[in-house]
């Protein structure tokens, strides 16, 4: 474990917590893409499938973190699609998730480390995570604005994989560890946040709200 991965995981946890708090406190999921949250839940379930297959005692933080990610993302989907369904902005959350799931599944069958079920699921999860934020960014571009708290969520979510890139550089240099598929997908994922990062740094940090040119 290195500092980059530690802060990456903390940033990811913060993102999940910020979103849960925003929905719970405002009792509304306006401005939040339910599809993105569904895709994240699928990512966690397919990536941590080993938790369900051979249940091991929660002997280390990694198992606990995996359970937190899965339960928090499923709970977030419950809040969006059931509890606060009335506030879900369905007609702006209109990016076709199938256009993300099918290519990720196809690519996972073509480019993977080992052609076995668990590995394919893991690879699918990595590819899907890289593009899972697109419905959320699409929704913001359609509504033309993002609540400040939602911007903080996006910043934390984007920073997590950016920090993981630093973690991979560190591990390549000190442990000569390379996980090419995760690295390529992580770079693509982080690039998708670039224009949001620019808006966040230039606007939100100064206390302004993000308003996209409609």
């Amino acid at each position: 474990m290195n500092i980059f991965r530690l802060f990456g995981d903390l940033s990811h946890l913060a993102a999940i917590a910020i979103l849960l708090l925003k929905i719970w406190k405002t009792r509304s999921c306006a401005g939040v893409s339910g599809k993105t949250q569904l895709l994240f839940a699928v990512c966690f379930i397919t990536r941590y499938i080993d938790l369900f297959l051979h249940f091991v005692s929660l002997y280390n933080t990694e198992k606990v973190m995996k359970l937190i990610y899965i339960s928090a993302s499923v709970f977030t989907c419950y809040l969006i699609f059931f509890k606060f369904k009335a506030t879900y902005d369905g007609n702006h959350d209109s990016m076709r998730a199938e256009f993300l799931i099918v290519p990720a599944a196809g690519l996972a069958c073509l480019i993977n480390t080992k052609f076995d079920a668990i590995e394919i699921l893991w690879t699918f999860s990595i590819y899907l995570e890289a593009v899972a934020i697109l419905p959320q960014l699409f929704l913001i571009s359609k509504t033309g604005e993002a609540e400040t708290i939602t911007s903080h969520y996006l910043f934390a979510q984007g920073s997590y994989r950016a920090l993981y890139i630093l973690n991979w550089i560190y591990r390549y240099h000190y442990e000569s560890h390379v996980d090419t598929i995760a690295i390529v997908a992580g770079v693509v994922q982080t690039i998708l946040y670039c224009d949001f990062f620019y808006l966040y740094i230039t606007k939100v940090v100064k206390g302004q709200k993000i308003v996209l040119p409609a």
Partner: peptide
């Protein structure tokens, strides 16, 4: 030797 490919990251 056989290297068990394991993803050790979240």
């Amino acid at each position: 030797g056989y290297y068990k490919y394991k993803h050790d990251e979240l």
